[in-house]
Nucleic acid binder design. Structure first.
Length: 700
DNA sequence: GAGCACTGC
């Protein structure tokens, strides 16, 4: 392997030039005077704060926020921007007069972690001056909380009640480079709010690569012939400030020739690291469970045949579907004389931080979601990562001391063929939820909305069509009353929301809300190698002839009758943690259902009511068994796509004539997950306009 | 008889 050296920062300009002269140059010498705060008992925390790279920029940041409408902060991991900047703002008086400072994160865990760290640094109890809000948890106190951490999704929900976010003086959007759908919608809306509320200050915190694009996005005034600065002297041109990180250097190694089989390449690279390199744990990035299991099996075979070469290796898989206890093994300290090798999906790129990693092996691939608006199907595809991802992965090796990264692709490929940034999620997704959110916020011209990255018109039109067929939008693409407004209030996929609303007329809201809660959880079953037979047998105890939705009702009933017992779950191969989440989501949905005027009612054993309510939301997913199919092939009514019932369904091999599915999983075939039987006449009842053109398909 | 990268309201 050829070696090449790289130091964080050398690939990235620290200061971004701007042809219009609107960007501020800031050198390291522009340091702030140190704070004099040193209350008894806080000296060490204060010293820790001062050691963070961002501390040097305290005055510069405050100056920019004071004088600029939007400030973009480029900060690498470890710069301390997420925890320090909100405190700087509070210290500078941005929370005076009953105003709040908000800081958003894409993930709930990050919100909790940052909020508790800040509360600790400020020496206050979490939930008082410093609080956070995530789904199910509002740890804030009105009139007391001034620093509020929240997910960007929660802030979007807040805009439904307060479209101008009037209680906030400064909003910091953190991790903006991840470009999640919520972040993109939020950025578009914040830009709009700024026109109405010039006093609102925005801070966009982002990794280097996206900073310029963000600045371009927020620079909009000149075209509108508005004054370059307001009465207050406020500069409307965004400023970009770069803050260096605290990572150690990472030496990058590329392969000389493209690898044919990246799983085998991973195995040989791990073994050669183990043979040649000093102590330090290894983090391997692969694409999914299959890859990971294959790599671990090959490495284990190596242990059997050549024990010497691989002795002392602790092999640990890591992916989100892994049971919690196994996930936590990756955080346990490495015993002396051993080397931990964590073989992971992308979960370790952003969501989890592992300590003690010195070596990273990067396959160059990850699974990514792509959406085809023509077929209306989302697929998970193994695809090459971007340079931004590759840098992020490499950075994982430099957290504790200088590290090494082994890229299983050539340098030529990295430099010339890899795309610079990933495709924003909004350009790879089904847009129904996104469209309804904007409609609820009064954004009617969605195609003309000012997006940080525009979604494709085809996907947008498809979303409008689906919402129209659900009766959520009218002929003028406005939210219908009451259905459209009710659907927008429910924080779930619009098809699920419609099913909940329809349950009111069928008198089965209790059952449908349970089903909606289960569908919103990844899986309520415990699965895994070695227990397939047992878990399948356990599933049969709950199986209902009507299908998976009714089976979920049986499981929920059993769980309640057991007194929500974890032993009961264990015995029945039901995931206890998942069931607790079901209870939580269910309670939230019940509150919302009550608020929008639905009547809480159980249909007892009238399962036809349940099936009709499901049909009202999911009629577009109706399929019929091909008459002469011996292998269980179905075709969708809408697009005549070939689909099959997933083997995990209780209707697998039962193959009823008419079914509706909840979602499709695409592998070598399209598999329907969570399937329920229906009567075809219900389809016409539920969506006459949707099926009238298709009556040539005989519905009997 | 197969398998779901990762979030979020």
């Amino acid at each position: 392997m050829s070696l090449q050296f790289w130091k964080p920062g050398t690939e990235k300009p620290r200061i971004l030039e701007d042809e219009e002269g609107g960007v501020l140059f800031l050198s390291n010498s522009l340091s702030s005077s140190s704070s004099s705060s040193s209350g008894y008992g806080y000296a060490s925390i204060e010293k820790q704060r001062q050691r963070l790279p961002v501390y040097k920029y305290r005055n510069a940041i405050l100056y920019l926020v004071e004088s600029r409408a939007t400030t973009i902060i480029v900060g690498e991991t470890g710069s301390g921007k997420s925890t320090q900047i909100p405190q700087f703002l509070k210290e500078a008086g941005w929370a005076h007069g009953g105003r709040l400072i908000a800081c958003t994160q894409p993930r709930r865990l990050a919100v909790q972690a940052v909020a508790s760290r800040v509360a600790e640094e400020m020496g206050v109890q979490l939930g008082q001056e410093v609080g956070y809000t995530i789904r199910f948890e509002d740890v804030t106190k009105p009139d007391v909380t001034v620093l509020k951490f929240l997910t960007d999704g929660v802030l979007l929900r807040e805009m439904m009640d307060d479209p101008l976010l009037t209680k906030y003086s400064v909003i910091m959007v953190d991790e903006a480079h991840e470009r999640s759908i919520s972040t993109d919608i939020l950025l578009g809306l914040l830009k709009k709010i700024q026109r109405r509320r010039p006093e609102l200050r925005l801070i966009i915190a982002s990794a280097t690569v996206e900073a310029k694009a963000m600045s371009d996005f927020f620079r909009m005034r000149k075209k509108r012939r508005e004054p370059e600065s307001g009465d207050s002297g406020l500069q409307l041109e965004p400023a970009i400030l770069s803050v260096e990180g605290r990572g150690f250097s990472v030496q990058i190694n590329y392969v000389e020739e493209p690898v044919q089989d990246y799983v085998r390449a991973v195995v040989s690279t791990v073994l050669s690291i183990h043979e040649r390199e000093s102590t330090g744990d290894v983090l391997v990035f692969l694409t999914g469970q299959d890859d990971i299991d294959a790599a671990i099996q090959l490495l284990n075979e190596e242990v059997q045949t050549d024990g010497k070469r691989s002795s002392g290796l602790i092999l640990l898989p890591l992916y989100s579907g892994l049971p919690r206890a196994e996930q936590e093994l990756v955080f346990s300290p490495t015993p002396r004389g051993k080397r931990k090798v964590v073989i992971s999906t992308n979960i370790a790129e952003t969501s989890l931080t592992l300590e003690g990693i010195v070596y990273v092996v990067d396959s160059g691939f990850s699974k990514q979601r792509f959406y085809n608006p023509i077929s209306d199907i989302e697929n998970l595809v193994v695809a090459p990562i971007s340079r931004a991802s590759a840098r992020q992965r490499a950075g994982r090796a430099g957290r504790v001391r200088p590290g090494k990264c082994y890229r299983l692709y050539t340098e030529e490929y990295f430099l010339n063929q890899m795309s610079n940034d990933g495709i924003p999620e909004i350009q790879r997704s089904n847009l129904v939820s996104c469209v309804i959110q904007l409609k609820a916020l009064g954004i009617d011209n969605i195609l003309g909305f000012d997006w940080p990255a525009s979604p494709s018109p085809e996907a947008m039109i498809r979303a409008l069509e689906v919402l129209y067929s659900l009766g959520v939008l009218d002929d003028d693409a406005k939210l219908t009353s009451p259905t459209g407004f009710q659907v927008a209030e429910i924080p779930l996929d619009p098809m699920v929301a419609k099913m909940i609303i329809a349950s009111n007329q069928f008198g089965c809201s209790e059952e449908i809300i349970t089903i909606a809660a289960v569908l919103s959880i990844q899986s309520i079953w415990i699965s895994g190698r070695g227990i397939q037979k047992e878990s399948d047998e356990a599933k049969l105890r709950f199986a209902a002839a009507e299908g998976d939705h009714v089976t979920f009702l049986n499981v929920y009933k059993g769980f309640l009758q057991s007194g929500k017992s974890s032993q009961w779950c264990h015995k029945n191969y039901v995931n206890y943690q998942a069931m607790r989440k079901v209870i939580e989501v269910r309670e939230q949905l019940k509150r919302i259902a009550h608020r929008i005027g639905l009547v809480s009612k159980s249909c007892e054993s009238d399962l036809q009511a349940v099936r009709k309510a499901v049909t009202a939301g999911f009629f577009a997913n109706a399929c019929s068994l091909e008459a002469y199919s011996h292998n269980g092939m179905y075709k969708t009514l809408r697009g005549s796509q070939e689909v099959y019932i997933h083997p995990s369904s209780v209707l697998f091999r039962v193959n009823p004539k008419w079914v509706i599915y909840n979602s499709l999983v695409s592998t070598d075939r399209q598999y329907m997950r969570n399937v329920i039987t229906v009567d075809p006449s219900w389809l016409l009842e539920a969506a006459p306009h949707f099926y009238q053109l298709q009556q040539s398909i005989s519905l009997h």
